[in-house]
């Protein structure tokens, strides 16, 4: 499934230089291809995460459209947009995103449970935990895990519904080399299986796994 951004802009009203506003994302067009890993690099504060959140349906753009297939996702009401995200977009946010009141296994199963489709969730969640190498921690709680393990939990959770679109924001931010390789390998495999994968990262290693690379600079995307 193709995810497209059409002239997407995000404007914040905040004192910036001599103006009272600034553009985190400025008139950006973008196509996330199926079966490919697309990487966006850029300096901190360049607008990468804002752009990813807009693509994920988590942050309304000031102008422009985000199309998933034929659907303008921001024309949907919150209920429909949430369901669309649950079914089609796996998001791996920055930082620690484990839910502390749930075990690792429950965290991974959650996207399935939300809309009452949890029949075969256990099996799928167990397989994903095995794939990301934390199956032995299934009954632990996120606060008992290392940073790398929590990140792998988030990846397994994002893949739980086998979404056609995966958006990963610095997925290897605090991982060691070994774990970084594992995570990139998993995302590459998801793309090889047909998913559209967007990778927002600082890691230069990621370029080995990417099919297309973009640079974000002052809210503008340019292909490298």
């Amino acid at each position: 499934m193709i995810l497209k951004a059409e002239a997407v802009t995000k404007k914040y009203f905040r004192k910036f230089a001599d103006k009272n506003y600034f553009y985190a994302v400025n008139e950006t067009d973008f196509v996330l291809k199926e079966g490919a890993v697309t990487e966006i690099i850029g300096r901190s504060g360049s607008g990468k995460t804002t752009f990813l959140n807009i693509l994920a349906g988590l942050l309304s753009p000031s102008s422009g459209r985000v199309m998933l297939g034929d659907t303008d996702i921001y024309s949907l009401n919150d209920k429909k947009l949430s369901l669309l995200r649950n079914d089609n977009i796996g998001v791996i946010p920055q930082g620690q995103t484990g839910l502390d009141s749930l075990t690792v296994l429950e965290n991974v199963k959650l996207p399935y449970i939300l809309y009452g489709k949890g029949e075969d969730a256990d099996e799928r969640a167990a397989a994903l935990l095995e794939m990301v190498g934390i199956a032995h921690l299934a009954d632990s709680y996120p606060h008992e895990l290392s940073g790398g393990e929590v990140r792998r939990l988030a990846i397994a959770r994002a893949l739980m519904k086998n979404p056609p679109v995966i958006l990963a924001d610095e997925p290897t931010g605090d991982l060691d080399d070994e774990n970084t390789e594992i995570v990139f390998g998993i995302l590459r495999k998801a793309a090889d299986d047909g998913a559209s994968v967007l990778l927002v990262t600082h890691e230069s290693d990621a370029q080995r796994y990417a099919d297309e690379i973009y640079r974000m600079n002052s809210g503008k995307l340019e292909k490298i």
Binding site: A56, L58, D78, K79, S82, L83, L84, R85, N86, D87, V91, P93, T97, L99, D100, L110, P111, L114, Y115, R157
Partner: peptide
């Protein structure tokens, strides 16, 4: 709020 944002990431609606 971060916990709730994580729920939203997974597709939880505001009403849920």
């Amino acid at each position: 709020k971060r916990e709730f944002a994580v729920y939203r990431v997974m597709g939880t609606s505001k009403s849920m």
